[in-house]
Design a protein around this nucleic acid. Structure first.
Length: 327
DNA sequence: AATAGGTACAACCGCATGTAG
DNA sequence: CCTACATGCGGTTGTACCTAT
């Protein structure tokens, strides 16, 4: 029953790879191509686990990998993606040509976390640390107080809200939607409680939505928090300025991955059926949620609200991640 | 020169999911 | 349909190198 084991785990070599071992992997791949990693140790003459060989190839030996320092632009992209989707390193790495998930993860853990902390920004929530601390103080004051019930009510409300993009007219963001099936979201403005209609094509690719979403969440210089619609702190303003300064998503005309990233967010077809399914699902769910919008942010629970709020925003902006955030 | 502490990053581990048999 | 392995992923560890004392 089942397949035979890939290797004898007790007798395989572990630890750093030697140049000779690297040469064997490279020779094997150039002769046989990539894949069938369980056979690689035997055929390449290596005393390693196939899984280890695959990892060495994907993280280090692949010819398309960059081995130089991360650029300022890559750094800002990582921060923006992390703010939007958290530590989904493989997803983030897909948008940084020549970088692996391991590269991005290591760079985040060794450099970027510290850099943000120095700026007074919490690397987990991407919110000012001073604000988080004051929110924790406020929350701790609630323990003997029946305000907890209203907090609970507000959390419930946060799940059911939709919010207007703080940037431009959505119609300018999603062009050419008529060529695809598209879905209509009823979105309720938090300030006016009035509704407007936004057409979102299910033909958007996740990469385009990612960049546009991250850019308008953090890349503008407004003095209003795009998530909470309240005044922001100095640290937060500086952080947004830091991300916005000289930042232009890289446009590579001949690269399908980055072809239409930019200010227009022109539509492009999704080739992955799963993405289309996710878009449909979220569109339907959001249209239901929007009907019961009734939430006013308060300073007491703004930290917790910000977390749930951000996830709601992500679900709107990045339908492909719906399953991840569907708690 | 010795060594303790910090840093960077390669590699491993364990889990979840997909799939061959 | 079930079992066990392959694959992909994120978290963690190990180790080489650097710097300060």
């Amino acid at each position: 029953m089942g397949r035979p084991p890939c290797c004898d785990k007790a007798n395989v070599k572990k630890g750093l790879w030697t140049p000779e071992e690297d040469a064997k992997i490279l020779a094997y791949v150039s002769n046989h191509g990539v894949g069938n990693w369980t056979q690689v140790p035997k055929k390449a003459g290596l005393n390693r686990c196939g899984k280890s060989c695959r990892l060495r190839w994907t993280n280090y030996l692949r010819p398309d990998l960059k081995h130089e320092e991360f650029t300022e632009q890559e750094e800002q992209l990582i921060i923006q993606y992390h703010a939007a989707i958290g530590s989904r390193w493989s997803l983030i790495a897909k948008h940084l040509p020549g970088r692996t998930d391991n590269d991005v993860k290591n760079y985040w853990n060794t450099k970027l976390k510290k850099k943000l902390a120095k700026m007074g920004i919490d690397p987990v929530t991407h919110k000012p640390i001073s604000k988080i601390l004051s929110d924790y103080e406020s929350i701790s004051c609630l323990s003997n107080n029946h305000q907890m019930r209203s907090l609970d009510q507000n959390l419930t409300n946060s799940f059911s809200q939709c919010r207007i993009s703080p940037t431009d007219n959505p119609e300018t963001q999603f062009q050419d939607v008529t060529s695809f099936n598209h879905y209509v979201l009823e979105e309720i403005s938090p300030s006016s409680s009035s509704s407007s209609t936004t057409s979102i094509s299910n033909g958007q690719t996740s990469s385009h939505l990612l960049v546009s979403g991250a850019a308008y969440s953090w890349g503008h210089k407004s003095s209003v928090d795009p998530l909470l619609n309240t005044d922001i702190t100095e640290e937060e303003h500086n952080y947004q300025g830091f991300l916005a300064t000289d930042f232009q998503p890289q446009i590579q005309e001949n690269s399908s991955q980055f072809q239409t990233i930019g200010v227009n967010h022109t539509s492009s077809k999704v080739t992955d059926d799963k993405l289309e399914m996710a878009d449909c699902k979220v569109a339907a769910k959001n249209s239901v949620r929007s009907s019961c919008y009734d939430y006013e942010p308060s300073s007491v629970n703004s930290f917790v609200m910000a977390l749930f709020d951000r996830d709601s925003q992500i679900q709107l902006d990045f339908p492909a991640f719906d399953d991840i955030l569907d708690y």
